[in-house]
Nucleic acid binder design. Structure first.
Lengths: 120, 120
DNA sequence: CAGCATCCGGGATGATACTG
DNA sequence: CAGTATCATCCCGGATGCTG
């Protein structure tokens, strides 16, 4: 599938306009922690504590905030089990999987090129 | 081409580790203004003033800063013409085009879904 | 026209303590 | 275990003024 910038402009209306929905969603999923949390969830369901350990350097506050935003966007599903001690699991929704289908090739390319890029 | 998270982990070493090159590059290209500047350059060469007008809301400071970062990463080429008044043009490098090849499908999807997502 | 230097305010982010 | 609440901090990013 060939995608042109013109198509993006047409479909999204105004990608370059302040406050347009596209900018808002981009800010969520392409934020420093948003990408890493989504990536961590790509290989399956994870518990809160697992995410905290997996996404190195994230604070509890930012993990909570990031997860709430992604959940509100319908990209991440939160499942709480009424047990003691509490157990909460996070996973990608259908929409989240669609997103990551598009984001993985990008991240893969960056991961491959990053060494060369920062070494300059 | 199928890309798995496992492949990313293998190739990049430690995507989730603090300070790894992948995180640095992701921060550059997925920053608020980085994405928009790269998008604007996807349909060809642009002058400084054009970019300033096209990427609505960006300040001169952030435009300059963003362009310098992307240029240092080898994603954007800067061409200065010794004229009066000065003329400077920016365009994607080969590597920049490779990047946008992967980013456009993602942005296109976001542009298409953004309305539904923020409307919730 | 295409920038750079400087100042500065506020939101983003981190650290810590606490709770159901 | 899975968060929330609070406070402290930092640096992103805007505004302004100036220059080649």
């Amino acid at each position: 599938m060939v995608v042109s910038l013109a198509q993006i402009r047409e479909r999204s209306g105004e990608v370059f306009t302040e406050g347009c929905p596209t900018r808002v969603v981009l800010d969520h999923i392409m934020s420093k922690w948003g990408v890493l949390v989504l990536l961590a969830l790509t290989d399956g369901t994870h518990r809160w504590g697992e995410l905290r350990r997996e996404v190195e350097g994230i604070s509890e506050k930012m993990l909570a905030s990031t997860l709430r935003t992604l959940e509100a966007d319908g990209l991440v599903a939160r499942t709480s089990y009424p047990e003691v001690p509490p157990r909460v699991e996070y996973s990608l929704t259908e929409r989240g999987h669609e997103l990551m289908e598009r984001m993985l090739p990008l991240v893969e390319w960056v991961a491959r090129e990053a060494g060369d890029i920062v070494a300059r």
